[in-house]
């Protein structure tokens, strides 16, 4: 119902990939992944559909690239071993069909949680940005409530929400220049 309506409405946002999640196991119904440039557009769609904002937060995927490369290498080695064993010529490239695309750089993930007052439909929107220049457009103009959540995410991860009116530390001390939830943060 609500999920289908949202899927149709979200079709306008070209980079949005929307998929259903198993609610009983995960606790949310829809997952949307969207390109950083279109965050505001996607939020506007959610706003039109009557969703309210629950939270904005980040996840630091430091080391993901290394892990993915390692996994890919291991897969390639296994494939090569298998190929050698079966006596065929080893393929030049590891099979890309199952392995996820290896990101060029480690990334932050910004997670937006939306929910609906009437329909039972939790939506998790994910945006990925590179760790070196973590910039995501703000949605605080669409959802004023996102203002504080984005400030908090900036506090904890150093993710810059471009266009945000005031990114000064909210929970951390006002002169804080560290981002404690980054995985490479040393106390």
């Amino acid at each position: 119902m609500k999920a289908n309506a949202l899927k149709q409405a979200m079709a306008k946002v070209s980079s949005a990939k929307i998929s259903e999640a198993p609610y009983a196991a995960k606790g949310f119904h829809l997952e949307i992944s969207v390109a950083p440039a279109e965050v505001a557009a996607a939020a506007a769609v959610l706003d039109r559909e009557g969703f309210f904002i629950e939270a904005v937060t980040g996840v630091d995927w430091l080391g993901e690239q290394a892990a993915a490369e390692k996994a890919a290498k291991a897969a390639a080695a296994a494939a090569a071993k298998k190929a050698a064993a079966s006596g065929e010529a080893a393929p030049a490239e590891p099979a890309p069909a199952v392995a996820p695309a290896i990101p060029a750089e480690d990334q932050f993930e910004v997670v937006y949680d939306f929910n609906h007052y009437e329909a039972l439909c939790r939506v998790t929107m994910r945006v990925r940005v590179v760790r070196s220049t973590p910039e995501v457009p703000t949605i605080s103009e669409i959802y004023p409530g996102a203002n504080w959540h984005e400030r908090e995410t900036h506090d904890f991860f150093g993710i810059v929400f471009t266009g945000h009116p005031d990114l000064s530390p909210l929970l951390l001390p006002e002169d804080a220049d560290f981002h404690p939830l980054r995985k490479d943060f040393q106390a």
Binding site: A55, D113, P144, G145
Partner: peptide, 15 residues
Amino acid sequence: YRLKLRSPSFSNLSL
């Protein structure tokens, strides 16, 4: 790996 606590008063106070 990451534990986000979404507290109600945070949103309630923001308005």
